[in-house]
Simulated scan of single mutants.
Amino acid sequence: MNTNPTLIVCLSCRKSSSIAASSARRTSFAKDSATAPHNSCARSPTLTSAWQAGMQLQLLDSTCSGQVTSKGFLRYGDKAYRHFASSKTHWDARNSCWNVNASLAVPLNAGENAFLASLVNTGTFWILADDATTEGVWVNTDTSDPLPYARWIVGQPDNAGGTEDCAEITYQALWNDLPCTLSRYYACEIPVAQCDQLKDDIRCSYLL
Rank of each mutant, 00 (worst) to 15 (best):
P179C: 06
L147N: 07
V9W: 00
S23G: 10
S144I: 01
C195G: 10
K71P: 00
R25D: 14
A105W: 06
I127R: 14
A167R: 03
T27F: 12
G155T: 06
N109T: 04
Q197E: 13
A114W: 05
Y186S: 01
A36L: 02
Q197W: 03
V68C: 09
F84K: 01
V137F: 04
F125H: 13
S103P: 00
R14E: 09
C97K: 02
A105M: 09
S62K: 07
T27G: 04
P191T: 06
D32S: 12
Q52E: 06
L7H: 14
N4G: 00
L119T: 11
A117M: 03
A150G: 07
A150Q: 08
T134I: 15
Q172P: 00
I127V: 15
G54H: 06
T3N: 09
R14K: 10
R43W: 08
C204V: 14
F115S: 07
W98C: 00
V120N: 00
L208T: 07
N99K: 10
Y149R: 02
N176E: 04
A53K: 13
D92Y: 04
F115W: 03
Q172F: 04
N101K: 13
A21V: 04
S87L: 14
T89Q: 02
I202C: 04
I19P: 02
F29A: 13
T69C: 10
E164H: 13
G161Y: 05
S17Q: 11
A102C: 10
P191W: 10
K15H: 11
W51M: 11
L74K: 03
W152D: 09
M55R: 10
N4F: 07
T46R: 14
A85Y: 00
T133E: 13
S70G: 12
M1T: 15
Q197D: 10
N39V: 09
Y171P: 01
L59W: 02
K31I: 05
G136M: 08
L74I: 14
A114T: 07
P107G: 07
T3R: 12
S49K: 09
Q58I: 05
G123Y: 01
Q58L: 08
A160T: 14
V154G: 04
I202N: 04
W138A: 03
I153S: 08
S18T: 13
V100S: 15
Q56P: 01
L47P: 00
A193M: 08
G66S: 09
D142H: 03
A50P: 00
L207P: 02
R203W: 00
T170E: 08
N140H: 15
N159P: 02
I190E: 08
P157Q: 10
A80Q: 07
